[in-house]
Nucleic acid binder design. Structure first.
Lengths: 361, 361
DNA sequence: CTGAAAGCGCTTACAG
DNA sequence: CTGAAAGCGCTTACAG
């Protein structure tokens, strides 16, 4: 008795005509041509699997002829490893982040990983992450974004390694990589104090971020060591336009000349550019003669002649190495402990802030 | 007779201890709890599939209880649709591209697509794309990257829609979206001519790109209409440092004052900033009094006070809409013809170039 | 080293 | 509307 064989999910006949797509070649097609089993094909494309040299050669030859490429999606379904890493970002306007996207992608590509990119407007990435997890990403890098503790727990339960980049977090079981924001802020304080500044103002980033909190604490701690304090403060929220507004609050015509700060530490270079433009072009103040400006990040534009911004450099390369290292380690061994990496931050002295006398050429 | 049932690919026993991962919940788990078939579960998560309201409710309730989320990888394997779009880029230093990454990601996310990001250092993305195709991406957006005609053909054979963003190409069966680079260049020529400039120089981007070629031809055509021509030319390759060098060639001390151009059209804003810094800070020339500078792109920094760059705006939003529209259309209907979309480019007048008299306030 | 076969977690044509 | 079952294209434990 012959069974009627039916093929669900396939049209009864291939679509006719020149527009017909070549149906993708699979390991079975290769096996047929090479006259080996489908397993043998799979093994020759699995590093470390045992295949006789002769078998391997025939498979590779057949694969070449057919233009075969193993289907990564099918592999993922079998192995539960997608070799995709989710990168979650919220703020590409700050020039530090394009650099991070670029370098991090390349670094992960080098290790055979691919980046699934998620941009979130809000800092809350929960909903996106749920979507992410459906794609079986092997790991998650959160840059400039926060994670609710509920979701952090869920991700931890699913054993997906997470690294917070440039953010720390209260949620447990998550590694973080950031620059030494407190140390950086403190170095700025020391530099300004040594330069004889008496009235230091602070232009804050988003107040709920660890970067802003640590940079500000570093500044305050460093100033205190010299008997100084922050005399004025406004919030720019890491946003260009709001930083302009904050600068007007701090230095605008309503501020008496005697009250005017003689130095401004800005929580990011991106905002520092806004501040410098307002100071010079709108308020007619000279930088650094009337007011010294110091930023944070050392983005490429900080070196541009029009700004020549003295700033704290975050070592992006070191931060990325630490991020990828942490991720790969956790990918290999789930039991690895979650740590906090702090990359040293160094002051880069340019022309936007008055220098200590002994530091001058 | 009882068959011995074995379970390959699964450890004989679950790993013990508190570190044991919850095994992911599948549609079968949900079906069991809801007391329906696995098919019914799948259908309630498939938009448009027919499920009785009561069944759906029980499934959703069970799914909620278990924290079930359909596995997107398994869905991809069945449907041959991954809902992933590959975005290939080479140059995030030019500020136009972070903007594109950000907006394009968000736009695609809105339609339920995800972005698989590939950064290539070289402009040749062939090897990366082969890797891409293994992930069954539904479509490809190539921004600032080229496609070899061999690979273009291969992708076309595989019926994967491709949109070249901000690049045109000689390879067939590929759609392109760009701004009207020729029209933009021509508008610059007219503006400079109307402003009374006599000696216009051109600072070129990478010479093998369509953007550079079209902008330059537009400039030359526009100048010719006014009896003018390009009196000097140097190549900056869309690179900041090389643009600085090119500016020195065009305006440096070796150039006799009588020979010095009175206007400079730069193929991208990114390079225009480099040029302005060299002109002002290194060569002591005033912009626009001694030399007018016009850029191309209208990146956010062009509006910064220190540059106030007159430039040609590329309408990123329109370009992205066109890109996504083209992509989705081809995703739905393979037979749709491949087209070339040209988005109008408009001159944005700021302070870096002398204005025509009748145009002044 | 090799092949047959089960399984990864879905979708969907088919037959009620 | 519903369930049983084949199929998507791999990987890998098992038994030679």
């Amino acid at each position: 008795m012959m069974a009627t064989v039916s093929y669900p999910n396939r049209p009864a006949q291939p679509r006719p005509g020149p527009a017909m797509a070549k149906s993708p070649v699979t390991s079975i097609d290769v096996a047929r041509l090479a006259e080996v089993s489908q397993s043998a094909v799979s093994r020759t494309f699995t590093p470390g699997a045992s295949v006789a040299p002769d078998t391997r050669a025939r498979v590779l030859e057949a694969a070449r002829k057919l233009g075969y490429r193993p289907n990564a999606i099918a592999r993922t379904l079998s192995t539960r490893r997608s070799r995709m890493i989710a990168l979650v970002m919220s703020n590409l306007q700050n020039q530090f982040y394009p650099l991070v996207v670029e370098r991090l992608s390349q670094r992960l590509q080098k290790d055979g990983y691919h980046v699934l990119l998620f941009i979130t407007e809000t800092e809350d990435a929960d909903e996106l992450l749920v979507e992410l997890m459906r794609y079986q990403v092997d790991g998650i890098v959160m840059a400039s974004t926060q994670l609710s503790s509920r979701l952090a727990q869920e991700i931890a339960d699913a054993r997906i390694p997470v690294v917070m980049f440039n953010r720390s977090t209260r949620a447990g079981r998550v590694s973080t990589v950031s620059s030494d924001n407190h140390g950086g802020g403190r170095a700025v304080a020391q530099f300004l104090a040594a330069g004889g500044h008496q009235r230091v103002a602070y232009l804050a980033g988003a107040e709920d971020t660890s970067t802003n909190q640590d940079r500000e604490r570093g500044l305050r701690d460093g100033l205190a060591e010299h008997g100084l304090r922050v005399v004025a403060r406004a919030v720019g929220h890491y946003d260009f336009e709001r930083a302009r507004q904050a600068t007007r609050e701090l230095f605008g015509p309503l501020v008496a000349a005697s009250e005017r700060p003689d130095a401004l530490f800005v929580a990011s270079d991106h905002m520092a550019f806004a501040a410098m433009d307002v100071l010079r072009l709108e308020l007619g103040l000279r930088v650094p003669d009337d007011v010294s400006v110091v930023g944070y990040d050392d983005v490429p534009q900080a070196a541009w002649g029009s700004y020549a911004l003295t700033t704290v450099a975050q070592d992006a390369t070191a931060m990325i190495e630490a991020t990828v290292g942490t991720l790969l380690q956790q990918l290999e061994d789930d039991a690895v402990s979650r740590g906090q990496v702090l990359v040293p931050a160094t002051l880069v002295v340019r022309q936007s802030a008055r220098r200590p006398v002994e530091g001058a050429a």
